Simulated scan of single mutants.
Amino acid sequence: MRLAQKRSERIGLWLVSAFMLILAASTIYPIFFTISTALKSTREFIRHGFSIPTAPTFEKFVTAWTTIKLDAYFMNSAIVTVIGVTLVLLVSSLAGYALAQMRFRFRKAIYFFLLSGLMIPVQVVMVPLFRIIVELGMLNSRVGLGILYGAFFSPFGIYLTSSYFASIPRELSEAAKVDGASYWQIYRLIMLPLARPVLITLGILTTLSCWNDVLLSLLVLQDDRTLMVGIASLRGEYGADIPLVAACVVIGAAPVIAIFLIFQKKILGGIMVGSVKG
Rank of each mutant, 00 (worst) to 15 (best):
A38E: 08
F130G: 08
L114H: 08
P56R: 03
A64C: 10
I190L: 08
D71W: 09
K108Y: 10
L3F: 13
G157M: 02
F112N: 12
F260M: 12
I200T: 11
Y164P: 07
S8Y: 12
P197Q: 06
P30T: 00
I52D: 00
V85S: 03
I35T: 06
N76E: 00
M191I: 04
V16P: 07
Q222D: 04
T27M: 15
A109R: 14
L115W: 09
S116T: 08
F19A: 15
Y183I: 05
D71R: 12
F106H: 09
L216C: 06
M126I: 14
P255Y: 04
L194M: 11
E135M: 12
G117H: 04
T63F: 11
L218E: 08
I259H: 08
F130R: 09
I83V: 11
M119S: 12
I31D: 06
I11P: 13
V16I: 14
D224E: 07
F61L: 12
V62G: 10
Y187C: 00
I52V: 08
A166N: 14
Y159K: 08
R131V: 15
A109N: 11
G270L: 05
I147D: 04
I200P: 04
E135S: 15
L244R: 04
A24T: 10
I257E: 04
G144L: 00
F74R: 09
V276T: 12
G96K: 06
V220S: 00
L160K: 06
T57Y: 07
S17A: 15
A18C: 12
L87E: 03
T54S: 15
V127L: 10
L70F: 05
A100R: 00
S154I: 01
R142V: 02
T57M: 01
S116A: 14
G157C: 01
F156C: 08
A176Q: 06
A55M: 08
S77P: 04
L15F: 13
R105P: 10
L15V: 11
G236S: 13
N76I: 01
